[in-house]
Design a binder for these strands. Structure first.
Lengths: 111, 111
DNA sequence: TGATATACTGTATGATATACAGTATTGTAT
DNA sequence: ATACAATACTGTATATCATACAGTATATCA
């Protein structure tokens, strides 16, 4: 795995938990994310969904009413709690990153 | 590893590459990050620094001029390139996240 | 003098992104 | 009608990384 690919870790968890406030099946999420400029591989998303379900953060049910069987996922109350925690972590990280970038710009060399 | 801990992945790479525009040794980075509100475990940072060096993104030299031997790290040109790429990825992710959060707020249920 | 902080090293473990291989249906072009 | 791409999944394998664990050695201060 490349250093750039490593960036997906953590982030896709949040994205999925936010998106699954609405009921969605895997393939649809994939296409939705792609539309808004974030391409995710199915090899990444499907196993993630399985893990999130195992952790009780989302649940699933098969829908056979449509033309083709689809597994719809939806966030659970536990998932909502974790989602808020993750969003907080992410925002803290953004603030920390801004601070360190700012410190560089203001030239620490002088010290 | 918990889902929350997973959030470190990717992020600490960027943070280190930004911080190492200035020459620093591991323990100092640890304390710097702690000061600005981001606690990192040494078990996380030290192996990361080894990996970044192996990948040629940072280099190191021992300093024995002080009271105690310290390994100072510094970013390489290659490291700067990767850093910019990672910052771009991070910013894209933030934008994508905002979009999905916004879409939820504006109630997709009606559709 | 003995505990605590500093400042590292090396290897092990477990979780995850991605890879690989496979199943089955639907829609479209030939 | 028939092949081909797109849809929509499943299951297991591999490699990388965060974290754990264990260890070394000097400095500081009660």
């Amino acid at each position: 795995m490349s250093i750039e690919a490593e960036m997906n870790r953590g982030f896709l968890q949040i994205l999925a938990l936010v998106a699954l406030e609405e009921s969605l099946y895997g393939y649809r999420m994939l296409k939705n994310f792609e539309e808004i400029g974030y391409t995710v591989e199915e090899n990444t998303l499907y196993p993630l969904l399985r893990r999130l379900e195992q952790a009780g953060l989302i649940n699933s049910k098969w829908s056979i009413s449509q033309d083709r069987p689809r597994k719809f996922y939806h966030i659970t109350p536990k998932g909502r709690k974790v989602r808020e925690k993750l969003l907080t972590i992410r925002r803290t990280q953004n603030m920390v990153l801004e601070k360190v970038l700012e410190a560089q710009k203001n030239g620490k060399k002088a010290e």
